[in-house]
Protein backbone atom coordinates (compact mmCIF):
# COMPACT_ATOMS: atom_id res chain seq x y z
CA UNK A 1 0.00 0.00 0.00
CA UNK A 2 1.16 3.48 -0.87
CA UNK A 3 1.28 5.38 2.39
CA UNK A 4 0.91 8.80 0.75
CA UNK A 5 -2.18 7.70 -1.12
CA UNK A 6 -3.63 6.20 2.06
CA UNK A 7 -3.14 9.47 3.94
CA UNK A 8 -3.65 12.17 1.32
CA UNK A 9 -6.52 10.52 -0.56
CA UNK A 10 -8.61 8.98 2.23
CA UNK A 11 -11.15 10.65 4.50
CA UNK A 12 -9.41 9.48 7.67
CA UNK A 13 -5.97 10.37 6.31
CA UNK A 14 -7.01 13.95 5.64
CA UNK A 15 -8.30 14.13 9.21
CA UNK A 16 -4.83 13.02 10.40
CA UNK A 17 -3.33 15.90 8.40
CA UNK A 18 -5.81 18.31 10.00
CA UNK A 19 -5.01 16.93 13.44
CA UNK A 20 -1.22 16.89 13.12
CA UNK A 21 -0.89 20.33 11.51
CA UNK A 22 -3.48 21.63 13.98
CA UNK A 23 -1.43 20.27 16.85
CA UNK A 24 1.72 21.99 15.53
CA UNK A 25 -0.11 25.30 15.08
CA UNK A 26 -1.71 24.97 18.52
CA UNK A 27 1.79 24.50 19.96
CA UNK A 28 2.90 27.66 18.19
CA UNK A 29 -0.08 29.62 19.56
CA UNK A 30 0.89 28.59 23.11
CA UNK A 31 4.56 29.52 22.59
CA UNK A 32 3.58 32.79 20.92
CA UNK A 33 1.36 33.73 23.86
CA UNK A 34 3.91 32.81 26.53
CA UNK A 35 6.65 34.71 24.68
CA UNK A 36 4.53 37.81 24.18
CA UNK A 37 3.34 37.92 27.78
CA UNK A 38 6.91 38.92 28.61
CA UNK A 39 5.81 42.41 27.58
CA UNK A 40 4.45 42.74 31.13
CA UNK A 41 8.02 42.20 32.41
CA UNK A 42 9.03 45.45 30.76
CA UNK A 43 10.70 46.96 27.71
CA UNK A 44 14.12 45.43 28.34
CA UNK A 45 12.80 41.86 28.64
CA UNK A 46 10.55 41.85 25.55
CA UNK A 47 13.11 43.62 23.32
CA UNK A 48 15.79 41.13 24.41
CA UNK A 49 13.36 38.25 23.68
CA UNK A 50 12.61 39.64 20.20
CA UNK A 51 16.34 40.03 19.48
CA UNK A 52 16.96 36.47 20.71
CA UNK A 53 14.32 35.08 18.32
CA UNK A 54 16.06 36.75 15.41
CA UNK A 55 19.60 35.92 16.55
CA UNK A 56 19.85 32.69 14.55
CA UNK A 57 18.28 33.52 11.16
CA UNK A 58 18.58 29.95 9.88
CA UNK A 59 16.59 28.57 12.82
CA UNK A 60 14.08 31.39 12.48
CA UNK A 61 13.50 30.54 8.83
CA UNK A 62 13.18 26.82 9.56
CA UNK A 63 10.44 27.67 12.05
CA UNK A 64 8.75 30.11 9.69
CA UNK A 65 8.77 27.72 6.73
CA UNK A 66 7.59 24.89 8.98
CA UNK A 67 4.66 26.96 10.21
CA UNK A 68 3.80 28.12 6.70
CA UNK A 69 3.88 24.50 5.56
CA UNK A 70 1.50 23.52 8.39
CA UNK A 71 -0.88 26.39 7.62
CA UNK A 72 -0.86 25.44 3.94
CA UNK A 73 -1.53 21.75 4.59
CA UNK A 74 -4.21 22.57 7.19
CA UNK A 75 -6.06 24.78 4.71
CA UNK A 76 -5.61 22.34 1.83
CA UNK A 77 -7.00 19.41 3.84
CA UNK A 78 -9.85 21.56 5.19
CA UNK A 79 -10.86 22.68 1.71
CA UNK A 80 -10.88 19.08 0.45
CA UNK A 81 -12.88 17.86 3.44
CA UNK A 82 -15.41 20.69 3.24
CA UNK A 83 -15.94 20.08 -0.47
CA UNK A 84 -16.60 16.38 0.19
CA UNK A 85 -18.88 17.20 3.11
CA UNK A 86 -21.01 19.57 1.05
CA UNK A 87 -21.24 17.06 -1.81
CA UNK A 88 -22.40 14.38 0.64
CA UNK A 89 -25.48 16.42 1.64
CA UNK A 90 -26.85 17.90 -1.61
CA UNK A 91 -30.36 18.62 -0.27
CA UNK A 92 -30.94 20.43 3.01
CA UNK A 93 -33.44 19.51 5.70
CA UNK A 94 -36.56 21.62 5.99
CA UNK A 95 -36.24 21.66 9.76
CA UNK A 96 -32.74 21.80 11.17
CA UNK A 97 -32.25 20.85 14.79
CA UNK A 98 -28.58 21.03 15.79
CA UNK A 99 -29.26 18.81 18.88
CA UNK A 100 -26.11 18.58 21.02
CA UNK A 101 -23.66 20.11 18.54
CA UNK A 102 -21.77 23.22 19.61
CA UNK A 103 -21.61 26.53 17.74
CA UNK A 104 -17.83 26.09 17.50
CA UNK A 105 -18.13 22.65 15.88
CA UNK A 106 -20.57 23.87 13.23
CA UNK A 107 -18.57 26.95 12.23
CA UNK A 108 -14.97 25.68 12.08
CA UNK A 109 -14.52 26.65 8.45
CA UNK A 110 -15.70 30.24 9.11
CA UNK A 111 -13.75 30.80 12.31
CA UNK A 112 -10.74 29.27 10.52
CA UNK A 113 -11.03 31.52 7.47
CA UNK A 114 -11.45 34.68 9.52
CA UNK A 115 -8.53 33.75 11.77
CA UNK A 116 -6.42 33.15 8.65
CA UNK A 117 -7.30 36.62 7.33
CA UNK A 118 -6.39 38.01 10.75
CA UNK A 119 -3.03 36.21 10.72
CA UNK A 120 -2.18 37.79 7.36
CA UNK A 121 -3.10 41.23 8.73
CA UNK A 122 -1.19 40.56 11.96
CA UNK A 123 1.96 39.53 10.04
CA UNK A 124 1.88 42.75 8.03
CA UNK A 125 1.11 44.76 11.15
CA UNK A 126 4.02 43.57 13.31
CA UNK A 127 6.44 41.53 11.18
CA UNK A 128 6.46 42.27 7.46
CA UNK A 129 5.70 46.00 7.41
CA UNK A 130 5.47 47.42 10.93
CA UNK A 131 4.64 51.11 11.25
CA UNK A 132 7.30 51.65 13.87
CA UNK A 133 10.92 50.57 13.26
CA UNK A 134 12.71 52.58 15.94
CA UNK A 135 15.50 51.23 18.13
CA UNK A 136 15.97 51.19 21.88
CA UNK A 137 19.01 52.31 23.93
CA UNK A 138 20.83 49.01 23.20
CA UNK A 139 20.19 49.44 19.43
CA UNK A 140 17.66 46.61 19.26
CA UNK A 141 14.32 46.90 17.46
CA UNK A 142 12.04 48.54 20.04
CA UNK A 143 9.30 45.92 19.95
CA UNK A 144 7.82 47.23 23.20
CA UNK A 145 7.15 50.66 21.73
CA UNK A 146 5.87 49.17 18.48
CA UNK A 147 3.27 47.09 20.35
CA UNK A 148 2.19 49.98 22.59
CA UNK A 149 1.86 52.24 19.52
CA UNK A 150 -0.06 49.60 17.57
CA UNK A 151 -2.54 48.84 20.34
CA UNK A 152 -3.05 52.50 21.20
CA UNK A 153 -5.39 52.50 18.22
CA UNK A 154 -8.68 51.25 19.73
CA UNK A 155 -9.95 49.90 16.39
CA UNK A 156 -6.84 47.81 15.89
CA UNK A 157 -7.05 46.55 19.48
CA UNK A 158 -10.72 45.69 19.11
CA UNK A 159 -9.95 43.76 15.91
CA UNK A 160 -7.24 41.80 17.73
CA UNK A 161 -9.60 40.99 20.58
CA UNK A 162 -12.40 39.81 18.26
CA UNK A 163 -9.99 37.75 16.14
CA UNK A 164 -8.62 36.11 19.28
CA UNK A 165 -12.16 35.30 20.35
CA UNK A 166 -12.66 33.49 17.05
CA UNK A 167 -9.28 31.77 17.35
CA UNK A 168 -10.26 30.45 20.75
CA UNK A 169 -13.69 29.30 19.54
CA UNK A 170 -11.79 27.45 16.77
CA UNK A 171 -9.39 25.93 19.30
CA UNK A 172 -12.12 24.93 21.77
CA UNK A 173 -13.38 22.50 19.14
CA UNK A 174 -10.13 21.90 17.25
CA UNK A 175 -8.01 20.82 20.20
CA UNK A 176 -10.43 18.16 21.40
CA UNK A 177 -11.09 16.98 17.84
CA UNK A 178 -7.43 16.53 16.99
CA UNK A 179 -7.13 13.92 19.74
CA UNK A 180 -10.25 12.23 18.36
CA UNK A 181 -8.91 12.25 14.78
CA UNK A 182 -5.55 10.89 15.89
CA UNK A 183 -7.25 8.05 17.76
CA UNK A 184 -6.58 8.98 21.39
CA UNK A 185 -10.09 9.93 22.54
CA UNK A 186 -11.35 6.68 24.00
CA UNK A 187 -12.73 5.90 27.44
CA UNK A 188 -11.98 8.42 30.15
CA UNK A 189 -9.50 10.29 27.93
CA UNK A 190 -12.41 11.80 25.97
CA UNK A 191 -13.68 13.77 28.95
CA UNK A 192 -10.18 14.99 29.77
CA UNK A 193 -9.50 16.18 26.21
CA UNK A 194 -12.91 17.90 26.01
CA UNK A 195 -12.28 19.82 29.24
CA UNK A 196 -8.65 20.56 28.34
CA UNK A 197 -9.74 22.13 25.03
CA UNK A 198 -12.20 24.51 26.67
CA UNK A 199 -9.82 25.49 29.47
CA UNK A 200 -6.85 26.07 27.16
CA UNK A 201 -9.02 28.10 24.75
CA UNK A 202 -9.99 30.43 27.61
CA UNK A 203 -6.38 30.64 28.82
CA UNK A 204 -5.22 31.64 25.33
CA UNK A 205 -8.05 34.14 24.95
CA UNK A 206 -7.32 35.84 28.26
CA UNK A 207 -3.53 35.65 27.77
CA UNK A 208 -3.53 37.10 24.26
CA UNK A 209 -6.17 39.78 24.73
CA UNK A 210 -4.64 40.95 28.01
CA UNK A 211 -1.98 42.79 25.97
CA UNK A 212 -4.26 45.03 23.82
CA UNK A 213 -6.63 45.40 26.80
CA UNK A 214 -3.77 46.54 29.07
CA UNK A 215 -2.50 49.01 26.48
CA UNK A 216 -6.00 50.49 26.05
CA UNK A 217 -6.16 50.86 29.84
CA UNK A 218 -2.91 52.84 29.83
CA UNK A 219 -0.13 50.26 30.16
CA UNK A 220 3.21 51.44 28.71
CA UNK A 221 2.04 55.03 28.11
CA UNK A 222 5.41 56.36 29.31
CA UNK A 223 7.23 55.28 26.09
CA UNK A 224 4.92 57.20 23.76
Amino acid sequence: MNIFKAIFCSSLGKKYIMGLTGLALFGFVIGHMVGNLQIFMGQEKINAYAAMLKSVPKLLWVARIGLLFCVGLHIWAASQLVRENRAARPSRYEVNDPTVTTFASRTMIWSGLIVFAFIVYHLFDFTIAPDYLGHDAKDRHDVFKMVILGFSNPFSSLFYIIANGLLCIHLSHGVKSLFQSLGFSTGQFRGWFDRFAVVIAWVIFIGNTSIPAAVLLGFGKEVL
Binding site: K14, K15, L81, N85, K176
Partner: peptide, 16 residues
Protein backbone atom coordinates in the same frame (compact mmCIF):
# COMPACT_ATOMS: atom_id res chain seq x y z
CA UNK B 1 -15.07 6.97 0.88
CA UNK B 2 -16.05 5.68 -2.56
CA UNK B 3 -19.74 5.75 -1.62
CA UNK B 4 -19.48 9.52 -1.16
CA UNK B 5 -20.13 9.93 2.56
CA UNK B 6 -18.76 13.06 4.23
CA UNK B 7 -16.11 13.32 6.92
CA UNK B 8 -16.35 13.38 10.69
CA UNK B 9 -16.01 16.82 12.29
CA UNK B 10 -16.64 15.53 15.82
CA UNK B 11 -19.88 17.46 16.34
CA UNK B 12 -21.37 14.53 18.28
CA UNK B 13 -24.74 14.71 16.47
CA UNK B 14 -24.49 11.02 15.43
CA UNK B 15 -23.94 9.80 18.97
CA UNK B 16 -26.84 11.93 20.23
Amino acid sequence: DEAGFGNCTVTGACEA
